[in-house]
Design a protein around this nucleic acid. Structure first.
Lengths: 147, 147
DNA sequence: TGTGAACTATTGAAAATTCAACTTTCCAGC
DNA sequence: GCTGGAAAGTTGAATTTTCAATAGTTCACA
């Protein structure tokens, strides 16, 4: 009988590798569009998260923007310097700092949103409506399980 | 009628975001296991790629290890310092540099492979055999289309 | 055969990220 | 009310990554 337990599959078939590869490619495309407007993807994510719901703590933002705390602190520093967002100490818990989008930040988010949607539309276009929906569903449940 | 074209979906539903999130989570888990052995994921990928086929050029490796050239050069520098791999100028094209795994590197790759497989096994276990296979298939074709 | 364009890899400076330590604030239990 | 431990954010040093420029090879073609 064949011994599949010792047949070590190439890394190109590992789930972790496939995810890294797909992520790299898709985010590279998105980054190219956004950088043409002078905005790195991390900042786009933050702007979009805030326009989905303004006024979030650093911890919440770090979690959702997929950044760890010190990185987020420094990214927010840059965005504050660019007047895209501002900090306000949370009156309900003064350990926390809440981040808000400025008008300038909101305007930028509105300008960038179509770029991101258009990129996704292009993918859906060449990849298929159903396949994309299915992929999203699978990713959502994977994240849910893994988290 | 409802105007779905202007309904801007939250970023948590964007494909690029879902991929980034899933990738972060799965790779975080893998990284935790590998770092316990003192090896960052990038180095694991390189070791595994070389054990799948020894003697690759920097360009080929960069492509497959999902690293850009200068980053790979410096990563290989570290691995050479640790005697995991070595460089040989390609006799057929002296612009190229071929990377080979040392015996030490091969031994490390053999030691690490079960960790990576075991992690995947855990995912398959909680996530389901079919769902995993389906996800992999979708990712493969997405990468193919996007590339 | 020799010249210039394209390709491969590396380098050094600049920028971003990470790690560990630190400050401030909150809260549970005494 | 105090006190000590936990939580939230920030900081500075060290590491890593990135960008732009460089050096060495190869190849097409005049």
């Amino acid at each position: 009988m064949s011994d599949s337990s010792s047949a070590d599959s190439p890394i190109t078939l590992h789930l972790a590798y496939l995810l890294a590869q797909a992520n790299r490619e898709i985010n590279r495309q998105l980054d190219a569009r956004l950088r043409a407007e002078g905005v790195p993807v991390e900042q786009w994510r933050i702007l979009k998260l805030l326009s989905d719901g303004n006024g979030r703590s650093m911890g919440e933002l770090a979690e959702n923007a997929l950044l760890n705390h010190p990185t987020l602190t420094k990214t927010i520093d840059r965005m504050v310097a660019d007047s895209l967002v501002y900090r306000i100490s949370d009156p309900a818990d003064r350990r926390k700092v809440l981040i808000y989008c400025s008008d300038r930040g909101k305007a930028l988010a509105r300008k960038l949103a179509p770029l991101a949607l258009d990129q996704e539309a292009h993918i859906v276009n060449s990849y298929g409506d159903k396949a994309t929906a299915q992929l999203k569903r699978l990713l959502e449940t994977l994240i849910e399980r893994a988290g």
